[in-house]
Amino acid sequence: MKPRAFSYFRADTIDQALNAHARAGDDARFIAGGQSLVPALSLRLQAPRLLIDIAHIADLRGIRREGDTLRIGALTRHCEMLSEPLIAEFAPLLRAAAPFVAHPAIRNRGTFGGSVALADPASEFPAMTLALGAEIEIAGPSGSRRVKADDFFIDLFETALQPGELITAVHVPLFRSGQRFAFDELARRRGDYALVGCGILASHTGDRIDDIRIAFFSVGNTPTRVKGAEAALTGFTFDAARIAAAQAALEDDLAPPESDEVPPAMRLHLARVLLGRLLGRLGEGA
C-alpha cells in the first residue's frame, strides 16, 4: 500500500523541529531512521499531514563521555552500537544487544532514539535502558528535562514523551570494573522480534552481588524490570539455590499477555529458562 499524502519538512536544528511540530499539532510526526514509521505509514496505520525529518540535526548526533555517564545522541544508528569503541567500552550491554536488533540493512538506518521513543515492548534497546538505569534527555516546547528509564515506559507504545517532544539523547552510567552484564533472547529466526529477551547488569564485590538490574522484553505491554528476581539475588552469590529463587520470582514479576502464538504459561517458562542461562553465565564471570 502507499501512504496518504503528507508534507515534508527537513529540520536543521532542534528548535526548528519543535517549532514545526508546535505549529502543526497532532497531525505531525518526527521521522528519524523511518524503519518503524515508514512501514506504519505505508500500511496506513498512521496518516499524519506533516513529517518533520530530524535525521540531519547535528545536535542529536554523537556519543561522548559526560562525567560518569555516556551521552548517546538520539540519532546514533543501531549499526554504530556495534562499531563505536565508546559503546563497547562503556555500554557493553548495548553492544551485546545490537546484533539482535533487526537485520543489517535496518540497523544501518534505525536510530537508538527512535527505538526508545517508539517503546515497542518487543524491542531490545528500550529494555536495555531499564537494565542500565539510563536517563532519557528530552527537549520540548517548554524546555528540556530528563526522565529516568524506570519512569519513561508507561504502557503499550506509551511513554513519558508529550506530543511534540523530542528525545535528544540517552545518558547511560559508565560501565565500570566490578560490573558484569549478560544479554540473550529467544526468537524463532535471527532478526525476528524475540519471543522473550533479557538483559542484566550486576555490580559485585568479589562474588557478592551488591546490585542487580534485570530487564525483560517481549513479556507484556512495556519493557519490564523484574524486581522480585532482583531482590532474590541482591546480597547473595550466583549459586544454584539463588538462581532458582530468582526464576521462581518471575511468576509474580511477569504477567505475560494472552496471545495465540505464545500462551502466557509458555512465555513465562521461556523467561525462566532464559534467566537461568544468563545468571549461570554471570556466575561464571561473564
Binding site: Y8, R10, I31, G34, Q35, V38, P39, S42, L51, D53, A55, A105, I106, N108, R109
Partner: peptide, 10 residues
C-alpha cells in the same frame, strides 16, 4: 538500505 523504507525526499 531498504529503498521501500525511505521516502525519496529523505
Amino acid at each position: 538500505v531498504h529503498s521501500c523504507l525511505m521516502f525519496a525526499v529523505q
